[in-house]
Simulated scan of single mutants.
Amino acid sequence: MMKLGTYLPLNERAYWKDSQELVCVMIIPEAPDTVTFCFKTADDSWFLYQPGQFISLELPVGPQPILRTYTLSSSPSRPISISVTVKAQADSIGTRWMIDNLKVGDRLRAYGPGGIFTFTKYSADKYLFIGAGSGITPMMSMTRYLFDNGEHTDIALINCARRPSELLFANEMRRMSQRVPDIKLHFVVEEDDPYAAWAGYRGRLNQLMLELMAPDYMEREIFCCGPEPFMRAVRDVLNVAGFDMDHYHEESFHAPIRTEEQVPEYDDVVPSEEATAHLTFALSGVEADCRETDSILTVAREAGLNIPSACQFGVCGTCKVKKTKGEVHMVHNGGITDDEIADGFVLACCSQPIGAVEVEV
Rank of each mutant, 00 (worst) to 15 (best):
A310V: 05
R232S: 09
Q312Y: 01
P29M: 08
D91E: 14
G334E: 09
V346P: 06
A161P: 04
V234A: 02
I307R: 03
T337C: 10
D267Q: 15
I336E: 04
K40P: 00
D148S: 07
I341G: 00
V331F: 02
D44L: 09
P264M: 11
L102D: 08
V299Y: 08
T34W: 01
K325S: 09
N171A: 15
F187R: 01
P256Q: 11
P353C: 06
P9Q: 10
P63W: 01
K322G: 00
E211C: 04
A110C: 14
V346Q: 06
A110T: 13
Y49C: 05
G150D: 13
A42P: 02
K184C: 03
C316P: 03
D18T: 11
T280L: 12
R291N: 14
P65G: 12
E190Y: 02
P113H: 12
F243G: 03
T318H: 05
A300I: 06
A241T: 01
L185P: 07
G200Q: 09
L22G: 00
C38P: 00
G335M: 07
S19V: 11
F119A: 11
N159C: 14
T34K: 06
Q207I: 13
I27N: 01
R232L: 11
K3A: 12
D246N: 15
A282H: 09
S134M: 02
S141E: 07
I307Y: 03
A348W: 04
G226S: 04
H254M: 10
L305R: 02
A90M: 11
A214M: 08
S177A: 15
K17Q: 14
M176K: 03
M245Y: 00
I130F: 01
E261M: 13
